[in-house]
Design a binder for these strands. Sequence first.
RNA 1: CGAGAAGUAGCACAAUUUGGUAGUGCACUACAUUUGGGAUGUAGGGGUUGCAGGUUCAAAUCCUGUCUUCUCGACCA
Length: 469
Amino acid sequence: MKLAKITPRDEDFAKWYTDVCMAANLVSYSNIKGSMIICPNGYAIWEEIERIMDAEFKKLGHQNVQMPLFIPESLLNVEKEHVNGFAPEVAWVTHGGEEELEERLCVRPTSEVLFCDYYKNVIKSYRDLPKLYNQWCTIVRWEKTTRPFLRSREILWQEGHTMHETEKEALDETLQMLHVYEDFQRNVLALPVIVGLKTEKEKFAGAVKTYTIEAMMYDGVALQNGTSHYFGQEFAKAFNISFLDRENNLQTPYQTSWGTTTRMIGAIIMTHGDDHGLVLPPKIAPTKVIIIPIGDDEKVTKTINALAKDLDVAYEIDDSNKSPGFKFAEAEVKGIPIRIEVGLRDLENDEVTLVRRDTLEKIKVKTSAVKSKITELLATIQKDMYDRALNRRNSMLYEAHDYEEFKTIAKEKPGFIKINWCGNEECENKIKDDTGLKSRCILEGETPDGNCAVCNKKALYKIYFGKQY
RNA sequence: CGAGAAGUAGCACAAUUUGGUAGUGCACUACAUUUGGGAUGUAGGGGUUGCAGGUUCAAAUCCUGUCUUCUCGACCA
């Protein structure tokens, strides 16, 4: 018996990535380009993501809804910047059965206009605000090249859409949700992320401001892992959404939206995975512990049952007839944080063997101490995984002071490059043309300490550039 | 969408050059023996060769189209 082979990570990173996705049974290709089948092992991770994030959304007062899948063309066309941004990647429905539709329908590429069309009817008074809605759904964007989790045509995600009485409230919501994403990715997914503002060129079509979560993969390439947008009143005006304030004056509300996708699963794989397969941070692992018996001795079975009964974390027992070596390899490719090996050799000393997935370190533990050791180990693994990812990420952050230096780093080293920037799109485009790097995000907390690294005029921002998936 | 490569059982491949009706290993099923890093034996099941046309007495093999996957660009979460 053999599991699927995984190409070594440092030999061919792209191939390694797809090998891990397939070997761990996370996804399977379908017959439709860019529509992947998310298999039970992959979907279980998404369910954990959904469970934890959804609880956080609700704690902050959000409610879940489900909007239609289709958008009539005229509705999509209401906000000009929005439709221009999305038009190239929209999928259209022209027929229902044999009947040709009078107005074609697009499959939602995102749901701003659907929410606006609804909010128009339900927002009448300041008492109706804020409206804090979220939906877990799929959307469709006709991407040209596709890869499992990273870029698909059918995208599984969550999108929050909120309406507020004042600009300040809406801006606060935009930042609040950005930080919900940031905390989740740092603390649960163990991803060291950089948050910041997208440039005018890179912001969401129709938004006033787009904040972004930028993660760096093992190969130094960026993955945009979530966005939070402030819309101001642009959509609300285009959709005639208004409410009466406390003085009986008609006002236009302020809007936000924010979203994250299964791309986060891709980020987990490409940040933490190794040549043995997936490595899951304990907090997101659907199964925290797998117990593997060595042999079918009665004493072994008894010990395992007793251990399992005592555990208070999600566990599996692999009592199949496969050889121990196979079971070890399988538990590793699936990324289960801890495995417990129980055999007669251990039991002679009243011990079992714990193995950390992240380091593959073996630890002997007295049977009576297993439960507490597991609690301790899960926390340690979570922390160590974050620290390792952080160190690696930090080792690929650079700063360039002039354009020659920028080009040299861009050419020789994968990662992100920080520069002073004048804010001019011409300089951003020049970098793109010369090096292929795109702006990641403006660092709002940092002030420039020199002139623009490209044009040498006065700089307004500190900004990161990097290659992206 | 542009350039390149590839599709034969779940996976990796053979048979394609020279057209003759599909085979191996792993995986899968049953039973037995095993079990500390990818077990062994015996007996089985599974393929109209991605799909659609065409040429031919005959197509996995030749021709055309199309779909999917991979790599590199352009586009995007």
